[in-house]
Amino acid sequence: MLTPVTDADGAPFWRYAAHGELRVQACADCGEPRFPPRPCCPDCQSFASEWRQLGGHGRIWSYVVPHPPLLPDYAAQAPYNVIVVELADAPRIRLVGNLVTQAGAPLNSLSPDRIRIGAKVQVVFTGTGLPQWILERP
């Protein structure tokens, strides 16, 4: 499986995720959250930023079900789902992830017919610090 190839801007996201915290970068001056993280604020041009903790709730904005040809580790789990989650406390930030039955479950653990745009989901974290999502009402 691919692990995040991170950079200076993105590294804090993954450090927090490793501790089970979902945080996004926000401007320390005007307060606007932004994603993906970047060196300065597109609204006020400030270089000061903070990492704001979020509640980890959201709704499915869209989803796909990939089929082969895929990289071998992913082909082995195909068809699986990839969802895009609109966050409840930062609605313009949409995170890519997987909808699973429980933390650490494989990408194909939930049947694709259980997935609906608009369904409420909640973040969970794998042992390796990768965020995943479970249905709030399974």
């Binding site: 499986m1 691919l2 692990t3 995040p4 190839v5 991170t6 950079d7 993105g10 993954w14 994603f35 993906p36 796909v64 990939p66 895929l70 990289l71 992913y74 789990q77 699986y80 990839v82 995170l95 890519v96 992830g97 997987n98 990408l107 990768l130």
Partner: peptide, 9 residues
């Protein structure tokens, strides 16, 4: 980093 680990390849 925000997409590929989740299988959006």
């Amino acid at each position: 980093q925000w997409t590929r680990p989740f299988g959006l390849l």
